[in-house]
Design a protein around this nucleic acid. Structure first.
Lengths: 124, 124
DNA sequence: CTGGATGCAAAGGGTTTGCACGTTT
DNA sequence: AAACGTGCAAACCCTTTGCATCCAG
């Protein structure tokens, strides 16, 4: 694959991932998009998700679960993960720019942080 | 499963995970242990790994790859991940006990950090 | 002797891929 | 027209599971 063409399906996959605040799974996107494109296939959803990751328009997340989740927010940010419902929530904590320098044995040029706890909804 | 009995295979799986500094995969453990127990099956390796995780003697890691990796170091620690060879290396950075408090919208009671960069070996 | 542990093989879940056809440029 | 995008189904990879047998307590 050299050049990417336009496709309505891919445009919609991107919009859906961006609009969803839940870091959706491929299956969730498929179910949603199948209403607009009844002939849609899972394979195509996966293909487009991978293309969008390749284009750096979205990110792939793999925390804990057996399946991938996708993040339409490509700005650097940390995540809060609910230990009960497994929701992944974007945090607006400032990025700790000095954190990488704390690693002395290696040259760290980026880092990820996940916080764990119980989300508002599960807290009741 | 109510009570766990002793089994030579499980004891060795634990030892192997603890001794390996590479956060091994189930397959790596299987290949290593098959030399000692020629009739060993993959299913049994997975079963024992899950039991050891259940017993909180080891941890399961899932960073990036499609397969699980296991960590015999159950003390809290951060990881450095080589972006080239995908090695996962334990760091001896002190745990930032105040970090959880930076999350104000939720009550975070733990966190994980992964640092990314190039490891010594890949740096040449 | 009872119930967990094992080997084997099959099934499972999520993701990828080959192919023929459809669509964009 | 050439090359990418799509649907379909099969293949893939890693992991789990059912069952008969084995072995620890």
């Amino acid at each position: 694959m050299d050049i990417y063409r336009n496709s309505k399906q891919r445009d919609r996959v991107l919009e859906i991932v961006r609009d969803a605040k839940i870091h959706p799974t491929a299956d969730w996107i498929y179910e949603k998009l199948k209403k607009e494109f009844p002939s849609l296939s899972m394979g195509n959803v996966y293909r487009n998700l991978n293309i969008l990751v390749d284009q750096k328009k979205i990110n792939k997340l793999h925390f804990g679960s057996t399946f991938d989740r996708f993040d339409g927010n490509i700005d650097r940010h940390y995540h809060f993960i609910c230990e009960k419902c497994k929701a992944i929530i974007d945090l607006d904590l400032p990025i700790d720019e000095k954190l990488n320098d704390r690693v002395i044995k290696y040259k760290a040029n980026s880092h990820k942080i996940q916080f764990y706890g119980i989300c508002d909804k599960c807290e009741k």
